[in-house]
């Protein structure tokens, strides 16, 4: 997939994973693996960005004697998913148009 396109999608993918409940780095990557491949070096800036624009909040908890950072989606994050879906509707119309070979209905 085109990297530019993938980058835009990944933010929402991560938010979608988190909309089912809090999660942590490794789990986010494995949850997404079925649909889209994400490396840790790709995930790190995404999580950082989502944290900065307040789409997620974090908490650090102990797990097996070490620290683990958990990410939770916020209302702003949910709003972002909604906006993405609306944008996608528009996008799909264009997609159909392109698929028809530019034929007007």
């Amino acid at each position: 997939m085109d990297t530019q396109l993938k980058r835009g999608l990944l933010d929402v993918c991560v938010l979608s994973v988190l909309s089912r409940g809090e999660s942590y780095g490794y789990k986010i990557i494995t949850d997404l693996l079925l649909y889209i491949e994400v490396s840790e070096s790709t995930l790190y800036p995404i999580l950082k960005k989502l944290e900065q624009n307040r789409s997620v909040t974090t908490r650090t908890a102990e797990h097996n004697g070490r620290l683990r950072k958990y990410y939770m989606i916020t209302d702003m994050g949910r709003q972002r998913i909604k906006e993405f879906l609306v944008d996608m509707e528009e996008f799909l119309k264009v997609h159909e148009f392109i698929k028809r070979g530019g034929d007007l209905l």
């Binding site: 097996n64 683990r68 950072k69």
Partner: peptide, 17 residues
């Protein structure tokens, strides 16, 4: 140190898995 913590967690989670 945030970045280091992220990668440490990631490595350790993978090893745990």
């Amino acid at each position: 140190s945030k970045a280091v913590a992220f990668y440490r967690e990631m490595i350790e989670d993978k090893i745990d898995a």
